[in-house]
Every structure is written in C-alpha cells, then in structure tokens.
C-alpha cells in the first residue's frame, strides 16, 4: 500500500474512502441517537410524542380554528403526511448544518472522510422518521382511512429520497459555511421556521393554484416531496412534472453542497 499526502488540487468525491470508512456512518448515527435519547426518562417515546403533539396542535389551530381545507381527508391524516417528511428535512438540516462545528474537537485530532459527519446527522433524522411512521399508521387505523398501500409503497420512498437528497445538499453546504462563518448558526433555525410556512406542510398546495407561487411549489423539492407523500394518502393524482423538476433541483443542490464541502474540508481543522 502506497499513498501520498499532499495538497489536493483536483476535485473528487472520495467515494472509495467513504466505502472504506463505512462503519463510521453507523457509529456516528448510533452515537447521536443514543446520546439524544439516553438522558430522557421517556427515551424513544419522544420520537413518537413529538410528531403526535405537533399534529394535535395543528389540528386544533388549522382545522378547528382556521378551517383549512385538507383535500377531503381528515386533517390529522393530512397534516401528518406532510409532517413526517418535513421533520426529516428540518431536523436533518439543523443537525447536519451544525455537525461540523459540534464535532470540531474530533475533526482537529483525527482524519476520516469528513462527509461522514453531515451524512450521519441525516441518518439520525431518518431514524426518527421510522417512529413517526409507526404513529402515522396508528392514526390511519384510528380514522379508518382507506389507504391504497401499493401507492404508498412507491410514493413514500420516492418522497423520502427526494427529501434526503435535498437535505444532504443543503446540509453539506451549510455545514461547510458554518465552519467559516459562524453567523449561520443563528440563520439556520430561523430559516427552518420560515420554510415551514413556505412549504405546504400545514395547508394544501392547492391554495396557490394558478398563481406564480405554484411554480415555486413545483420547483421546490421539499414541497414536492410533501405533495408526493400526501397524494399517496389522498388519492389525488401525482404531479409527475413537479416531481421530475424538483428532482433536478435537488440534484443540483446536492452537487453544489458536496462540491463546496469537498473544496473547503481540507481546511476545517485550521478554521474550526
């Protein structure tokens, strides 16, 4: 085995190295999950209680109070179909954007492919998704909702892939920027709050029909993912054009994110 340590000028994804260090994905994800729930008395129950509580408050405000349309299905079923996807995006983005800074002590002392850190933060968010999905199935049964399971079987994974690609793109980009400009630490939580209202999590994207916002919704990968997951349960036709377009956007984000990250990662140890 012979290799050379020198300044890198050429850009590479470093996939080979990622594969060599694949076990670290598991260990970082496992550590984050363990640490997150270890000190909580209710432990993993929080992964269930959080989406449940959110669903209840949203039902109270948006369905009972504001009488928001829910595309003909019970509002809790409607809201959760978006929330489960939204939570993957919001917690995945928040965790990964802060991941490089919060793991600075490790980065400064040991070498391993840095991409593992933001990627595992997203895997941690996917773990919570599994619990949220269980809750959702419970809610579907409770409301005796007629579900086309075959449709769920391809819509939900597709929607998840779209979400993860987008989160990874934005997450790697923000985590790299965060090392250099600590301002992002304050910007990100605010940005996520802002995005919650821009995306059709709590309301139907149909309210924007025939307006310029409709195109933003079509191109927005998170909105698209939510609509895709939702249409699995409402039975509404899937907007394949929007799915295709937003896949393009999310791949572009992924490319920009990973490129920025790889370009700057060599100097993380000097900056962090």
């Amino acid at each position: 085995m012979e290799y050379i340590i020198e300044r890198q000028y050429k850009f590479s994804l470093g996939i080979k190295e990622l594969i060599r260090y694949r076990e670290l994905f598991y260990f970082f994800t496992w550590r984050d999950i363990k640490v997150k729930y270890k000190q909580a008395a209710l432990g993993f129950m929080w992964a269930i209680l959080q989406p449940l509580a959110m669903m209840m408050i949203f039902t109270l405000i948006f369905s009972r109070g504001l009488k928001v349309s829910s595309e003909g299905i019970p509002y809790p079923v409607f809201a959760l179909s978006g929330l489960i996807i939204w939570n993957v995006f919001s917690s995945g983005l928040l965790n990964s954007a802060n991941s490089m800074v919060s793991n600075a002590n490790i980065i400064k002392k040991i070498y391993f492919p840095r991409l593992i850190i933001p990627m595992s933060s997203i895997l941690t968010a996917l773990f919570d998704f599994c619990f949220a999905l269980l809750i959702y199935i419970g809610v579907l049964i409770y409301y005796n909702h007629q579900t086309d399971w075959l449709r769920v079987l391809y819509c939900l994974p597709l929607s998840l892939i779209l979400t993860v690609t987008t989160t990874l793109g934005l997450g790697t980009m923000l985590s790299a920027l965060n090392v250099k400009y600590r301002d992002f630490q304050y910007v990100i939580p605010f940005m996520i709050q802002f995005l919650l209202f821009v995306n059709p999590v709590l309301y139907s994207s149909k309210i924007f029909e025939n307006s310029w916002m409709e195109w933003i919704m079509k191109l927005n990968p998170v909105a698209s993912a939510i609509n895709l997951s939702r249409s699995a349960f409402t039975g509404n036709p899937i907007d394949w054009l929007s799915v295709g377009l937003s896949f393009g956007v999310s791949l572009l984000l992924l490319f920009i994110g990973v490129y920025t990250f790889r370009k700057t990662e060599a100097y993380f140890a000097d900056l962090a």
Partner: peptide
C-alpha cells in the same frame, strides 16, 4: 497534523507505505 492527514501541507509531499494511525 500533516502526517495524520488532518490538515494538508502548503507545499511538498509525503509518501507513505503503510496505514498511519495518529
């Protein structure tokens, strides 16, 4: 730090013929 691959050198190179643990 350069030997461990944590930070790259500005110039020069290191040829390694074995796995380094730091």
């Amino acid at each position: 730090k350069i030997l461990s691959g944590i930070t790259p050198p500005s110039k020069g190179r290191i040829v390694c013929r074995g796995r380094i643990a730091s």
